[in-house]
Amino acid sequence: MAPREVPLGGPRAMAVRRTLPQRHRSLIGAWCFVDHYGPDEVSATGGMVVAPHPHTGLQTVSWVFTGEIDHRDSAGNVATVRPQEVNLMTAGRGISHSEVSTPGTTVLHGAQLWVALPAEHRDTEPGFQHHAPDEVAGDGWRAHVFLGSLLGDASPVATFTPLLGAELVLDPGTHLSVPVDPTFEHGVLVDVGHVEVSGLGVASGDLAYVPTGREEIHLEAGADGARVLVLGGPPFGESIVMWWNFVGRSHDDVVAYRDAWQAQITEAGAVVRDGRQVAPGRFGIVPDQPLPPIPAPALPNARLRDRR
């Protein structure tokens, strides 16, 4: 699957390559969104400056190859996204956050991923987890497993459905057969290089889909080596409605989320509770962030359709 280029956070923002969702495939396991960006020279692009914005019904998974991003959210979590360290934010019933590349970042390169929460957990409390996986390595390859288990390593990060997320770096010409769970479907996002994925040639920036029933994924790197992200999970089995930053189960869900966000950001006078500034609304306020919140775009004239 080839990506399409979209602006991140507005028409003058840095460009990202979006490979999921697409018209013919909306989910891989519970993975419902894959953005891939860089390497971008921050002096030329301005880097990542995404002001406070809301989420519902999902988890965000941030993974960078180069550069650093400061994360702040309305649950009071402040963290820096660094290379080979995963930051997972649970939006649940509602959260807002900002993402801004650090002043010391000169080159920004990474992936922003979303996971749909199953219906029974989509209104869970917001949360945040951080993990720096150890490197595992073999003949011609190195890996960092940030979700689930692969190649003898396992991540302690908790998710609401079984998931796999890992970075693999392959030396030039390396052949690697990766044992995988046959109940999972998988996606292989090629960051750099050219890779044969179980016999299919996949160029840099593209995402290869591997259906359930496979016990191994065969990877072969080209002459320049390669770096890939391997994502997976059992087929989600639920329909979702995804629009802007919201995941719901119906058009009316999304309308309600949008209305709540718009009402909240136009509210006068936040209050201080437990030592931090918050609003009485669903999404809270991102503390110590001078950037004004991003208003929601207008809804389309037609009812939003579900994704399966």
Rank of each mutant, 00 (worst) to 15 (best):
G9V: 05
G281M: 14
R122P: 09
S204P: 13
V136Y: 10
V107A: 13
I217D: 07
R25N: 08
L164C: 14
L27M: 08
R305L: 03
A270V: 11
V145E: 00
E135T: 11
T19F: 03
R305P: 03
V100I: 15
A279C: 15
G9I: 07
G199I: 05
W63G: 01
P39K: 02
A154E: 09
Q59V: 03
A221M: 07
S198Q: 10
S62P: 03
D73K: 05
W261R: 14
A79E: 04
G213Y: 08
A223P: 10
P234S: 06
P292N: 06
L207A: 05
R17M: 02
E196S: 10
V100M: 11
P118T: 02
V188I: 07
I28T: 01
P300T: 05
L88F: 00
R227N: 13
D139V: 01
T161R: 11
P297I: 04
I95C: 10
H175F: 06
A116Q: 02
W141R: 00
E196D: 08
T80E: 15
V190Y: 14
T19M: 10
Q22N: 11
G225N: 15
R142F: 00
A119E: 13
H97I: 08
A226I: 06
D224M: 14
A263K: 12
E267M: 09
F33T: 09
V86L: 10
G275L: 09
E185H: 13
D139I: 01
I95G: 08
R258N: 15
M1F: 14
T90S: 03
S204W: 04
A15E: 10
G269R: 15
F236R: 04
A137I: 01
P172W: 08
G187P: 00
L168R: 07
H144I: 03
D253W: 02
H130I: 12
D134S: 13
P295F: 05
L150C: 01
F146P: 00
H194T: 11
H130E: 14
E196M: 04
A51G: 12
H97R: 12
A132L: 10
L58S: 09
P39W: 01
P293A: 07
R25T: 05
L8S: 07
R4A: 07
A137C: 10
T159W: 05
V278S: 14
F283Q: 05
Q22M: 14
T90D: 01
P292V: 09
A270W: 12
E220N: 06
T105Q: 12
P293Q: 07
R282E: 06
A279V: 15
P126D: 04
L113P: 06
S26C: 02
L20N: 10
D134V: 07
V34T: 04
R276Q: 12
L163D: 14
V190P: 12
Q129M: 11
V197G: 04
R276K: 12
M89R: 13
